[in-house]
Design a protein around this nucleic acid. Sequence first.
DNA 1: TAATTTAGTATCGACTCGATACTAATAAAG
DNA 2: CTTTATTAGTATCGAGTCGATACTAAATTA
Lengths: 192, 192
Amino acid sequence: MLKNPVAMLQLVERLGNLIRAEMRRVIGQEGLQPVHLEAMIFLNQANRFSNTPQSLAEFLGVTKGTVSQSLLLLDRRGLIERYQDEVDRRVVRLRLSQQGEEMLEAMQPASLWQSATRNISANRIRNGVSALRETLYMLQSYNGARTFGVCNTCIYCQRKSQRTHHCALFAERLSGPETRLVCREHVPKSVS
Amino acid sequence: MLKNPVAMLQLVERLGNLIRAEMRRVIGQEGLQPVHLEAMIFLNQANRFSNTPQSLAEFLGVTKGTVSQSLLLLDRRGLIERYQDEVDRRVVRLRLSQQGEEMLEAMQPASLWQSATRNISANRIRNGVSALRETLYMLQSYNGARTFGVCNTCIYCQRKSQRTHHCALFAERLSGPETRLVCREHVPKSVS
DNA sequence: TAATTTAGTATCGACTCGATACTAATAAAG
DNA sequence: CTTTATTAGTATCGAGTCGATACTAAATTA
């Protein structure tokens, strides 16, 4: 019956709602919904093993049928491109279109948050990030959800030289920039 | 271009999505949506100055038209009761019905979160709560949103004796339990 | 007394979302 | 090899959200 964890939950819920409301405000005039912005943010960060409808559905926590509808809309609006995978011809690959990238760049969804956190001490934020991250990992492990972290925090990521890395799961080479992208197969190095 | 605040934003977004997905799971078989659960949680905590459709709309960050629809559904399901205010006959008062209270009690929406935070040090959680709270206050002040805090953290709440408090805004007496309810007119005592 | 504001409801259209049913490509089993 | 799963994705349906708009009725202001 600890009170602080409940307080944290309510803060996260309330902040989440405010973020969604802010998304609605920013994106509403484009005729989009919050989930569309979330999808675009994900596609902007997903690596080449994770830029599929299935992966996006897992990230958003919705069914593949639902995500298929949202992708239809984003495609109609010209914000994403869909193309078939060459190896496995069942899978569809997704990427932001030029227009999608420009829109995402233009609306800067994090700017308000940046202002809001400006006067909070770096140490307090670090502590907050740490507590939230740990909670997230626990919640994800409870329901078997993926962590969707970036490669350089993943147990499968091995540094080969100054500039090249290697993914032990997919057995493929990773460039430096690629190690900062989000992967659906991510397994966190340590749960600290 | 600080990285930690962005990390915190992404964590809050992701946790918010997971909480919504969990809500869907818990409440889906009742034929309800996440927003219905949020409304019920709010109504369970709202004080007698804040238990109205307007107040709920502001809390949820949606329009009064939208909230009116959700209330219609909750009413049809017998989870809330609506009654007219005696003084101002335009306003509708809301409260959970017996059945609504029982349902809310039964599904314990915070239980998974309690488990997830069990092994995090109290100090780290305190820091996290502090950072999140400050961010929330900043975001709320930016867009003029209400803080929706409990009376005993509000500048208008004055302690009269051991057991009775007084609200300087509404100029009314508050019982002890009432000072732990959420108010739409809440103004935080300090932004620390 | 008239004009304005406020609280709430009703209706419409676009979209989400889960459920179900489907297609097509791949993988597994015999 | 062929048959049988399994997997990735799409299509369709119904209930509901959500903003926008238009409305009613009560309260407030002029």
